[in-house]
């Protein structure tokens, strides 16, 4: 390998290398870090963020953004908790999914068919859905009356085959959506629309429909995340998902997807989610407060994206005069 190739290799794999360095550092600092229990714990606590990130990955690859997923997740959580006591969990879950999918369809309609700017639309929806949630709940926290006697807790607290259910849902959904994105005609069209929407249209792809489906996918994942959240806590504030939209984007960017669309994979997003999770956990284990991870995440995001584009342009510093 020439010097240049080594440089480009380092830049391309920079995020994995940084991740490895972190893992080794944390392991040296605290031997409990790579404990199976701890690893399981990390994945479990990343599951909600992860499930949301899976859906947003579709949106980002199709060349759009979704800033509404945080407040949409709050909505799902509040709705399913409320309906749990009113119509029972068996009906509450499909009802909540239906309502959340309606929100996703609305956004998909605006961005896909009406071709409105996704940043502003989802920014507006962030606010609107937040208002909707507050109106729905009357601003009150939502709690399930009988927290002991419901099977509803299985999604957030249960175990199957010795593995926590949230992990199964996260990884199962990741596998399913990963295959969908990489192996099906729909997945191919998502990449085409995000890579060059005009060329996709000129190839007969119904771009609006593809974008619409991506938002539907995103809202489905949000509903799933809301289900896990509700089931885990069996009670919730109206703002439970607030700010998650940006953490989701952070995870996707860390995974190496371009916000311009056309690149990224489900696998990379899962890596991005896990990196965030392990960093958070590692910092806690070495005795630092949760908020230190914000600062670390900041540095890592910028380094990751910087190295990525530096590798593409072949020089470290930008050519901006």
């Amino acid at each position: 390998m020439s010097k240049q190739e080594i440089g480009s290799f380092l830049a391309k794999q920079g995020i994995l290398i940084a991740f490895a360095v972190f893992m080794i550092g944390f392991t040296l600092a605290n031997s409990r870090f790579l404990d199976p229990d701890n690893v399981m714990g990390v994945i479990r606590s990343s599951a909600i963020l992860g499930v949301m990130a899976l859906g947003v990955t579709f949106v980002v690859i199709s060349g759009n953004l979704d800033l509404s997923v945080g407040s949409m997740m709050s909505f799902s959580t509040i709705v399913v908790l409320d309906l749990h006591d009113k119509i029972g969990p068996a009906l509450a879950i499909p009802a909540m999914f239906a309502m959340t999918l309606c929100l996703g369809a609305f956004i998909g309609f605006l961005v896909g068919y009406l071709k409105l700017n996704s940043l502003i639309v989802t920014l507006g929806m962030l606010s609107a859905i937040h208002g909707l949630t507050l109106t729905y709940s009357g601003g009150q926290n939502m709690d399930i009356a009988d927290k002991e006697g419901t099977w509803f807790s299985v999604f957030g607290q249960g175990d199957a085959l010795g593995i926590p259910v949230p992990i199964l849902i996260f990884l199962g959904l990741a596998a399913f959506l990963g295959i969908m994105l990489s192996k099906t005609p729909f997945g191919r069209k998502v990449y085409a629309v995000g890579g060059n929407g005009t060329a996709a249209t000129f190839s007969g792809i119904r771009r609006a429909r593809v974008v619409f489906m991506c938002y539907l996918m995103s809202s489905f994942c949000v509903a799933t995340a809301g289900l896990i959240q509700a089931s885990r806590s069996l009670g919730s504030q109206n703002t439970v998902g607030q700010g998650l939209e940006l953490e989701v984007l952070a995870a996707i960017i860390l995974g190496g997807a371009s916000l311009l669309g056309g690149s990224g994979t489900i696998f990379k997003t899962v890596i991005g989610v896990l990196i965030l999770g392990f960093i958070q956990n590692g910092l806690l284990l070495v005795g630092l407060q949760f908020y230190v991870q914000y600062v670390v995440t900041w540095v890592i995001i910028i380094l990751a994206v910087w190295l990525d584009i530096a590798a593409k342009r072949g020089r470290l510093w930008s050519p901006i005069a």
């Binding site: 990449y191 890579g195 060059n196 005009t198 060329a199 056309g262």
Partner: peptide, 9 residues
């Protein structure tokens, strides 16, 4: 390049 091809594919 703009209409015929998805250059990154």
């Amino acid at each position: 390049k703009g209409q015929g091809l998805v250059l990154g594919m």
